[in-house]
Structure formats: structure tokens, C-alpha cells
Design a protein around this nucleic acid. Structure first.
Lengths: 112, 112
DNA sequence: CCTTCTCATCGTATAATTGCAATAACAAAT
DNA sequence: ATTTGTTATTGCAATTATACGATGAGAAGG
């Protein structure tokens, strides 16, 4: 039981859901904002900005990386991260596309 | 261990993360699209559009309702749902605001 | 070489999510 | 009143997410 049925849906839906899931924790949104603010890549400075322990932050970073929203490289003894601008742009484009497909502002709420 | 630290973050971040989490499953995005397409409210017709059993769909509907993205009323023996346009608009506005705060298109990827 | 600093990974514990069968609740129809 | 149709809820199993201490891997500095 409870086997995942997510792959029964269209690829576009899965992609959008994956991106949304990556944004589904405040720490990960905060990480994106920090990376954007600091511009160039950071490593454990991210830890300093969050109320979370270093392994937890590392885990969130990996999830953002798995979702394709950030890039990470090893730079000497440190580890640099930055936003993957193309992917983030693609994500927001998908959200905009979703918004338009929902045809809001058509009328007022017409429930029942 | 593992007690939730989400409330350590700013309310705005939590709100955004909650909305994103609600979009974090393809079935729930599909439900929003169905509700938007059918315009007026539906009930178990949603079930017919998804590869999921009725209780599972009911659960996803409740999560969308808890996130504030849809409204639901009991109409006789049926149950009507519709998009909460104001909330959905607010969600997309928050996403747009996030996008702008990330200052994309500033340069190319400048990782390390 | 040894220490230190930085970060990832492992292991573990708790909580939340996902999924459905079974059942309840309740209106509508016979 | 009994059956039927529709939806929510309950209960359960499996999976995934969240969080951190402990440990490992590797570079930098002494």
C-alpha cells in the first residue's frame, strides 16, 4: 500500500510539483534568498543565516540541488553554491503558465 | 529530535512554503486545473479525472482547502468545490514577489 | 605529520505524507 | 422504511520528510 502514484501524471505536472515541493519548506526559500542576495556562491555562511544545524542545512541544500534550483561545486576545502538561474526562471515561467491556465479574474467566486 | 522548526521563520516565508507545499503533488495541481476548467464547482467528478481512489482524492481536496486555495460546501448529498480566487491570486503574487526578490537576469550564472 | 576548519554522509528518531479498504453519515429516491 | 448514491472519516501500512549527533573525507596551516 501507499506506493507512490505521482508518475501516473503528466511530466509537466510532475516537474511543477517537484519544484513546488522544493519550495515547500521555509528554510529552502530562505536559502534561495540568501544565495540571491550574496550574489556569488556561499557555503557554510548559509548555516549562519538559519536556525538549523549544519547537517540539516546540508540536507536542504541537497534537495534544492536535486530539484535543479541551485548548483554546487567543491572549491578547495569549502563548498560553493549558487542559484541555477535558468532553472529558477523555468520554474517561475511554469508557475506563470499555470496561473494563466487557471483563468482567474474571469468572474467572482462562483461556488455552488 | 526532529521537531518542526518551521515556525522559527518569518510568517511570510511560512505562508509561501505552505502554498508551495500544497502545490507539491501533481494530483493537487491537476485538481486546481480541473476546478478552473469546469468553472463552477464539482464534487466527485474530480475523482473521475484522477488515477486515485475516492478517499485519496478527498484527502487531497482537504489539504487544498486547509491551504486556503479552494472552497468547499455541502450541497445536498453532494459536495461542491471551487477555486478561492483571491487566495490563489495572493499565492501567485507572492511567487512573483519572490521571483523579483531573487534578482534574476542580473548576470549569467556566477558560481565560484 | 598533526591539527584545524569545512562540509558531506551515516545513523537514528520522530513526524508527516501518501494511499486505500472499510465504514460512517446523510440526503435522495424508491 | 429501505435502498441507493455521494462524500467524509477512520484505521492502517508504507513511504518520505525533518532534524541532529556522530563520524568521515579532504583541504589548509602549523
Amino acid at each position: 500500500m501507499a506506493r507512490n502514484k505521482s508518475n501516473e501524471f503528466a511530466d509537466e505536472l510532475q516537474q511543477m510539483a517537484n519544484w513546488a515541493k522544493a519550495l515547500g519548506h521555509p528554510a529552502r526559500i530562505a536559502i534561495l534568498q540568501t544565495l540571491a542576495e550574496k550574489g556569488t556562491c556561499i557555503c557554510g555562511d548559509v548555516v549562519a543565516t538559519l536556525p538549523l544545524a549544519q547537517p540539516t542545512v546540508s540536507q536542504h541544500l541537497r534537495e534544492l540541488k536535486d530539484a535543479g534550483l541551485i548548483q554546487g561545486e567543491i572549491e578547495g576545502s569549502k563548498s560553493c553554491y549558487c542559484i541555477d538561474q535558468e532553472q529558477v526562471k523555468a520554474m517561475f515561467a511554469a508557475f506563470t503558465s499555470l496561473k494563466e491556465s487557471l483563468h482567474l479574474e474571469r468572474t467572482l467566486n462562483n461556488c455552488c
